[in-house]
Nucleic acid binder design. Structure first.
Lengths: 199, 199
DNA sequence: GCCAAAGTGGAATGTCGCGTCCGTTTTCCA
DNA sequence: TGGAAAACGGACGCGACATTCCACTTTGGC
């Protein structure tokens, strides 16, 4: 579409293939994937990738950005449909765990390790922050209603957040052996118990 | 000491220096440390390291082994001095968090990712397993006494375990801003609430 | 103090993955 | 259909590391 000329459709198709391939590989194995692997899976040459993305980090950022925006969107929607804090908590855990099943490496984020090359994009950190904020909001609301015990909301949210990490899901999955939903249910029980106001 | 001849004392000294340097660097930054960095910090040449350890993985394994054995020892001792489940839980968290302060990268283990080159040694997995077993034992005992709620002990232990990971500590530390003990106390409150039998 | 064995350091080598370059192929417009 | 422009792909260059090699140094036994 540049300079009055339509974008060539092979170029368009290849961009899609590259993004698709990169998404699949990154989601599964994180950023320690070779550019050549991505190219091979996409059925193109490495040069084609570099035409669109100046570096591996840029490709990672693009894939990560899309995945994180999507995840954030899903999390917002899921909580919006719930009206009590416990329901919102359950929704967050369910959604996060279901996504972890397919995209553990892409969603795995460690906010404290901000500088490790492209393994952690700022989008992941933003997703983490958004999730932390959502949890905190739920906790504050629960405290207002008296269903969630007192205590610094940011700290409680941080502890819950650890249990929402894809790694936790994988670990749990390994032990429980059941579906993502089964695992999520265990985590929900645990978190709810940890947060509930004492009887 | 081989072949009737004493081990040269420069060799012995250098081995100690290498292990010390490797421990410091690995503890801080994990296995993405250059052999040359280790050599430099130890004040030796890389050749000297390779004389003792056939590969970087072997060096990592040696350092990791020592750290994990030591950690396991500390955890056992700490729980042995406590006589009720909650006390044992508190002790485990306190000890683990204090160690995390210095050795987060060495103790950080992800049992589900067993094959990622040398970043995860089998010792780390064993430490993880031991910690999981200790938690499980504490939980079973608490359930017997009626102070800990019912539920699959392995699953409950797995969820607690996530909160004992050095990453969790670092994240919490960042938010709380206090000492390792402060962070541990928050985690203890959370875990105890999550596990307590309902009133 | 002498010397053979043990140990040392760091330059050289091999491997691997990122990113570039350019001859070839495809597409689009007229 | 012809040809210019855009896109392609994969061989190649390069830097970063792990590991090897060997001329040189230190040590322990005599």
């Amino acid at each position: 579409m540049v300079n009055g000329r339509r974008e060539r459709k092979d170029a368009q198709r290849n961009l899609e293939r590259v993004l698709q391939a990169a998404h699949e590989l990154f989601a599964e194995r994180g950023s320690d994937v070779t550019m050549e692997e991505v190219a091979r899976r996409a059925g193109v040459g490495v040069g084609t990738i570099y035409r669109r993305f100046p570096s591996k980090e840029h490709l990672w950022a693009a894939v990560s950005h899309a995945a994180c925006m999507d995840a954030q969107q899903c999390l917002y929607q899921a909580t919006a449909q719930q009206h009590d804090p416990v329901g919102k908590l359950r929704a967050l855990i369910m959604v996060q765990y279901r996504r972890s099943e397919e995209q553990s490496a892409l969603l795995d984020m460690r906010p404290e390790a901000a500088s490790e090359s492209c393994a952690n994009s700022s989008d992941q950190q933003q997703l983490y922050a958004a999730l932390h904020a959502m949890l905190q909001e739920v906790i504050v609301e629960g405290q207002r209603r008296g269903t969630i015990r007192q205590g610094a909301p940011d700290v409680l949210a941080a502890l819950c957040l650890e249990l929402l990490n894809p790694r936790t899901f994988l670990h749990l999955r390994h032990i429980v052996g059941g579906s993502a939903e089964d695992c999520a249910e265990h985590a929900v029980q645990f978190v709810v118990a940890a947060l509930s106001a004492r009887g």
